[in-house]
Computed example of a mutant assay.
Amino acid sequence: MAKGKKKKSQPKGKTITLKMAQNSMELTVDGKRRLNLSFQEIAAVPKCLQKLCEVDELDMSRNLIRKIPDFIDQFVGIRVLDLHSNYLEELPVTIGRLQNLLVLNLCNNRLTSLPNELGLLTKLQTLHLGLNQLDTLPASIGLLKELRHIGLSDNRFTRVPGCISRLNNLQKVNLDRNPMLTEDTASQESVMISESLYVVTESFLCEHCRKKLKNKKLEISNINKVQFIAAIVANMFLGVKW
């Protein structure tokens, strides 16, 4: 009798003990406690990390992690959380309890959506979401009033998310390589933008760029006025009352 083929199992990943995790603790140049578990072939976040939750920075990038456990909310004082280059498909709602978080890096994962609870990270200044499978952002992102930088490159956005227009302190938005719809795509066909596309506030432009922007606004305004007057004249001939 022929032997059946063995079913391929998911890689278990490397087991991290508490002692190994303690040996991965670092002190940054500015005196912050950093737990560096990058490049460790971890497939699941070790439960023993709950005993090291008083760190300032946690780096679990470049691993095999598919899920972030709910106990992530025990890292209440954490300021930097780096989870880039894993296999994350979703985030727990408990991530919204990391009230002191300044930097959240979720690049190069498999995220298709984000929890509304991200809007609770009111101190967040940098949010990296590039290289995922996102086509929308939760409206709660508009509550991140301290956000300066948001990376959305290499996703599935067809237009600039409306919620980011509410972020008054935002300095840069990276929408590189998204299938953005252009104004002349009446058939709703998408075109891939290969060049860099950034959104910045006017105050961060140089004097030359601000002058060009002002002239462009004036040009558009004049065009609109001419079109309006032309419409009035045309309708006068047609007997339309204004």
Results as ranks from 00 to 15, higher is better:
residue 129 L to Y: 07
residue 191 V to T: 11
residue 125 Q to P: 01
residue 80 V to R: 13
residue 27 L to F: 06
residue 144 L to A: 07
residue 7 K to W: 04
residue 183 E to G: 02
residue 156 R to D: 10
residue 34 R to M: 14
residue 4 G to A: 09
residue 237 F to W: 01
residue 110 R to V: 02
residue 186 A to E: 02
residue 241 K to I: 02
residue 55 V to N: 15
residue 29 V to C: 00
residue 160 V to Y: 01
residue 144 L to Y: 04
residue 57 E to M: 09
residue 122 T to I: 14
residue 17 T to L: 02
residue 43 A to F: 03
residue 198 Y to T: 05
residue 103 V to K: 10
residue 50 Q to N: 14
residue 128 H to Q: 08
residue 104 L to G: 02
residue 129 L to C: 01
residue 147 L to Q: 10
residue 238 L to P: 00
residue 159 R to P: 00
residue 1 M to C: 01
residue 222 N to V: 14
residue 35 L to D: 12
residue 77 G to L: 03
residue 128 H to V: 04
residue 39 F to L: 14
residue 120 L to W: 00
residue 198 Y to E: 02
residue 13 G to P: 05
residue 116 N to W: 00
residue 54 E to C: 10
residue 106 L to D: 05
residue 70 D to L: 06
residue 51 K to Y: 06
residue 231 A to Y: 13
residue 63 N to E: 01
residue 56 D to E: 08
residue 95 I to W: 01
residue 147 L to N: 06
residue 6 K to Y: 02
residue 12 K to R: 14
residue 209 C to F: 13
residue 74 Q to G: 01
residue 145 K to M: 05
residue 58 L to V: 12
residue 112 T to M: 11
residue 17 T to P: 08
residue 97 R to F: 09
residue 174 N to G: 01
residue 63 N to V: 09
residue 106 L to N: 06
residue 188 Q to C: 09
residue 60 M to A: 10
residue 200 V to G: 08
residue 24 S to Y: 08
residue 76 V to D: 03
residue 177 R to Y: 08
residue 206 C to M: 12
residue 230 A to G: 11
residue 98 L to Y: 12
residue 105 N to V: 08
